[in-house]
Structure formats: structure tokens, C-alpha cells
Design a binder for these strands. Sequence first.
DNA 1: ATAACCCATGAATCTCTGTTCAGCTATTGA
DNA 2: TCAATAGCTGAACAGAGATTCATGGGTTAT
Lengths: 122, 122
Amino acid sequence: MSSPAPSSISEVLSYEKAQRMAEFFSLLGDPNRWRILSVLALGETRVRDLAERVDMTESAVSHQLRILRSARMVSYHKQGRNVFYTLQDHHIFNLYRDVSEHLDEPEEDPGLAADSIAEANE
Amino acid sequence: MSSPAPSSISEVLSYEKAQRMAEFFSLLGDPNRWRILSVLALGETRVRDLAERVDMTESAVSHQLRILRSARMVSYHKQGRNVFYTLQDHHIFNLYRDVSEHLDEPEEDPGLAADSIAEANE
DNA sequence: ATAACCCATGAATCTCTGTTCAGCTATTGA
DNA sequence: TCAATAGCTGAACAGAGATTCATGGGTTAT
């Protein structure tokens, strides 16, 4: 048994844990996914309109939404033949807002906002 | 002219900005880079020892260090024929620590810590 | 019922990224 | 000087990820 042990920083990261960390960051490692999130941050949107606003094909958007869905970053609800997507919750919204705003600060590397990231995974 | 304008969240993210955001997250989107950072979080380390501890070839480690270097996440100093690498600064250390600890919390998705991420980019 | 529209999905393709491999420089020790 | 060690780098190769293309299901309108 033995509980996972609150690994303070005293050992090399396990491969399994490193994998999980990398997977989350990879989700945000695509510019088009960020653009999609940026549209959703303005309010719920149909796939079709989403595609138009980010200038991608509907298919490409749909594939990306699948990824964001399985990561629980967006949710959706159907209405007739339309499907409306939204940011899953305020954590995701804060994540987008914080990272985005941090990048607006001039003279700095691409910026982020870590508290939001923490929340985004809950 | 016209200053960049503190883009509040009212428009679609520009492609250029989305790109920068994605690039930063991509840096942390590889498990081996996390493992390397985890070793460096324990103290400065030679490339050779680094390779041994994360179980990678020296060459592979060297390639990854090149990426981390150009992202200013690690720094180094030579001593004879050895090259010692360290985390660039406490921001990077905090980033690693926070994200790592967040992941230790049971029953949650891969976790992160956004304030550290913000700092890590300065 | 038929046509048009919205969206999802699988396969193929293409691109990007990471590792391996071979070779090179520089430094140390015999 | 010669051999061995430490590290870096470019090219080749392989795998992962993203888009395109074609297709199919479900819904609305005619």
C-alpha cells in the first residue's frame, strides 16, 4: 500500500507524473485551441460560427473541440441541429484571462498566470 | 501608431498572440523536460549526470537543454570540460514546485499553478 | 419525403517535435 | 603527443499531432 507520499522536491519526477504534467501543458500548446477558447470566453458559440471567427474549417474546429471536451475545458449543449459550446467553468475563463493579460505586458516573454492554471485542473 | 491596447477580453485572440501563448505552454509539454527540470530543482548538475538520472542519452539531454536555454529557463556555467546547469531563477523553481505539488493532490486532473507560470516568463 | 444545414468522425496526409547516430571541439590526463 | 572524457550540433529517422477530405447521422424547412 503506502500512500503516494507528498513528494516534496527531493527526487526526480516519476515518468508517470511528468507525463501528466506534460499532457496538461500540451493542451494549451496549440494556437488554434487558444483562439477557440478566446471566442468562447466571449460567450457560448455554435461550431459553425466558431469556425468562421477563428478562420478554420468546421471539421478542424470539431476535432479540436473534441480534445478540449475530453480535457473538460469546454462543455456544450445541443439546440436543434446546432451545438453550442462554452468554457467549462470560471476556472477556465480565469486561465484564459490571466494568461492573455499577462502577455499584454510589454517587454516580457510570453506570460502566464499560474494560479488560474492550478484552478483550471480541478 | 496606436498602442497595443490593453486587450481586455473582447475580441478573438490574434494569431500572433495565440502563437506566443502556445509556444510557452509547448515548452512544458514534454515529460522529459519536466524530468530534467526536476533534477535541476535539486541543484546544479552536469549534463552527464543529468542524462544518467533521467535515463536519457547525453545527446538527447543536450538537445533538450538547448531548448530550455533559449527559453531562458535554465542557465549554465562551464568548469573545465564539465558544464553545470541550473534553473534560471526562483521563478522557474516555483513553477516546478507548484505544478508538481498540485499534481500530488489526489482525485484531480493534472494540476498546475498559474502565478508561478506568470513569473516564469518574466 | 426530399433537400439543406449542422456537426461529428475515420482515414489519409502533412507537419512538427524528439531521439538516435555520427562527427566535431575542447579539455584533461597519461 | 595521444587517448579519453564531456558536451554540442546537424542530419536522418520515427512518432505524435493537426488539418483535410469524404462520409454519415440527425434536425429543420419546403
